[in-house]
Design a protein around this nucleic acid. Structure first.
Length: 520
RNA sequence: GGCCCCGUCGUCUAGUCAGGUCUAGGACACAGGCCUUUCAAGCCUGCAGCACGGGUUCAAAUCCCGUCGGGGUCACCA
């Protein structure tokens, strides 16, 4: 057998869908696993305008995830062009050959006529497969039909007996009866060719050995096999992947049903989390582009490509009963179609988030800081270019934050460390609860005086000193620390208190406490 | 409706092909607890599933038949 070659054939829709990219991932993994090639082919037979513009987000998303293609747009290859709109000559020629060999015919039936027959069949509860009442047997027939104002489409002349067994690599043998198959149109009245013809011709021309695609194409396989056999092609192997389903449902995930998914608590949280970040960095949160069903969403808010990849791979595939965390290379090493599940897999936002968290926390402080910096810059919290001091501060905040960030964009939630003291915002609820509490202001004032005289301002010294303060005042830590936190950060929750103080330094801490005291 | 696919905790899954080691394992989520200056994290515990009904067998999640349920597809879309 020749080299393994798989392909992903997206149409330029302007965005990379989660379900689509999962298919691409499996095709890519399979090719890489077997040392073969992964080909990207653009299915633009239907849309003419702005293909490049609508394609860009798809290519970008694939690149972001590290799914690279050996042949396709940008990189070219020996079987190009890789745009179906540029390959019409091949299809045309194939259609003529099918006509010549009797595997296809010119059908002069009008759309309405076919439609009427189809509806009649449905009413009588019998399958509709073909009309064949307007086949032009001779040139004279053709001329007569044309004089009548009719135009011909080319239809496949499907067999009326026997059956086909497709040995699907994931599902095993699948049985189809030829008699159930319609005489599908392969060329329109205007001469342009349709997807099934184009796809079959291209798969052969590009020497695709394994057609790995979504389950929705399983029912389409017989007509493609028919075309391939009629044209004398060697058949590729087929593997039909289960759908990526809606959260909590078995229906195919769709970009258009955002409102419905938002009823799912976890999905709503995922989007909400993203929006909080998007708001701060000025990313428009319109559902056309900012939507968890689209890969771009994750890049925009600072997910790690390897986390998405890992999650997606496990959506329908598994290695064994325990291994969950995979890097790109391990995925390639272990992937196999035999271990792809047959049932649809629901998209689980919470699990994706958990994977992200795990991968993000595998990173060192420095790497996390590097990833977070652009978010601070976009939020206007750190200048661009940042400069050494700013970079060090980001790293120190990141170190003190520990596991508190899930995605790189979460850094904007720690804006208090980057904002000038006189611009720090105080959460009114926090002020009421912690600063306006009886005795809080007095204690805060006393604590402020201690801080003012403290020699060193690192977390250890601060904590040590706090204990001395507690003893001197005869109070519990809870009685003072919350007030200090609100005073210097404006918030009720955040980093460890002593880390926060040390991060700000004495001058900034004192200034903030002074501001806070005015609020009491 | 015809044809095709699918059906193990709420979710993703292991186990099904080669029936026993499965009173069904893991993860996420959820609940409770511990830790604790907050929030996370971490640790511990808990909750929860073989769609149903027949059969075959000493033995069925696993094999067979049927039922039910879900999904896909039936375009001059891809």
């Amino acid at each position: 057998m020749s080299t393994t070659r798989t392909r992903f054939a997206p149409s330029p829709t302007g965005y990379l869908h989660i379900g689509g990219v999962r298919t691409a991932l499996f095709c890519w993994l399979f090719a890489r696993k077997h040392g073969g090639q992964f080909i990207l082919r653009i299915d633009d037979t239907d849309q003419q305008r702005n293909v490049q513009e609508a394609l860009e987000p798809i290519l970008h998303g694939l690149r972001w995830l590290g799914i690279d293609w050996d042949e396709g747009p940008d990189v070219g290859g020996p079987h190009g062009p890789y745009y179906q709109s540029l390959r019409w000559k091949w299809y045309e020629e194939a259609a003529e050959r099918l006509l010549a060999s009797g595997h296809a015919y010119r059908d002069y039936a009008r759309t309405e006529e076919v439609q009427a027959e189809r509806e009649a069949a449905q009413r009588e509860k019998r399958p509709f497969v073909a009309s064949r009442r307007f086949i032009a047997e001779t040139d004279a027939d053709a001329r007569r039909f044309e004089a009548d104002g009719r135009k011909a489409v080319v239809r496949l002349k499907m067999p009326r007996e026997g059956n086909l067994v497709v040995n699907d690599l994931i599902r095993g043998p699948v049985d189809f009866e030829w008699a159930q198959e319609q005489d599908h149109v392969i060329r329109r009245a205007d001469g342009s060719c349709l997807y099934h013809l184009a796809s079959t011709v291209d798969d052969h021309a590009m020497q695709i050995t394994h057609v790995i695609r979504a389950e929705e194409h399983l029912s389409n396989t017989p007509r493609q096999v028919f075309i391939a056999q009629a044209l004398g092609y060697e058949l590729p192997q087929y593997a039909h992947l289960p759908f990526v389903a809606e959260p909590g449902s078995k229906t195919k995930l769709s970009k258009r049903k955002l409102a419905k998914y938002l009823k799912n608590r976890e999905f709503a949280q995922l989007l909400e989390h993203g929006r909080r970040i998007a708001d701060r960095i000025g990313v428009p949160a319109d559902p056309e582009a900012f939507n968890p069903v689209i890969v771009g969403f994750y890049e925009k808010v600072g997910y790690l490509p390897e986390a998405l990849l890992n999650y997606l791979a496990l959506l329908g595939w598994s290695l064994d009963e325990r291994t969950e965390h995979f890097g790109r290379d391990q995925l390639i090493e272990h992937f196999s179609l035999e271990r792809v599940n047959r049932a649809p897999a629901g998209f689980d936002p919470a699990k994706l988030s958990a994977f992200q968290q795990w991968h993000f926390n595998q990173l060192g402080t420095e790497q996390k800081a590097t990833l977070a910096l652009p978010f601070l810059q976009r939020a206007g919290l750190v200048p661009a270019p940042a400069g050494g001091d700013a970079e060090r501060l980001v790293e120190r905040v990141m170190a003190a934050a520990g596991d508190r960030l899930r995605v790189a964009g979460d850094i904007v939630a720690f804006d208090e460390f980057f904002v000038p003291d006189d611009q720090l915002l105080y959460d009114p609820k926090a002020v009421d609860k912690r600063l306006r509490k009886e005795g809080a202001a007095d204690l805060l004032r006393k604590y402020r005086e201690r801080l003012a005289t403290l020699e060193t301002f690192d977390p250890e010294t601060l904590e040590h000193d706090m204990h001395a303060f507690l003893e001197a005042e005869g109070i519990q830590v809870g009685q003072i620390i919350h007030a200090v936190r609100v005073a210097v950060t404006g918030k009720q929750a955040g980093l460890g208190m002593f880390d926060a103080l040390a991060l700000l330094g004495r001058d900034r801490a004192l200034r903030r406490i002074d501001r806070a005291l005015v609020l009491t």
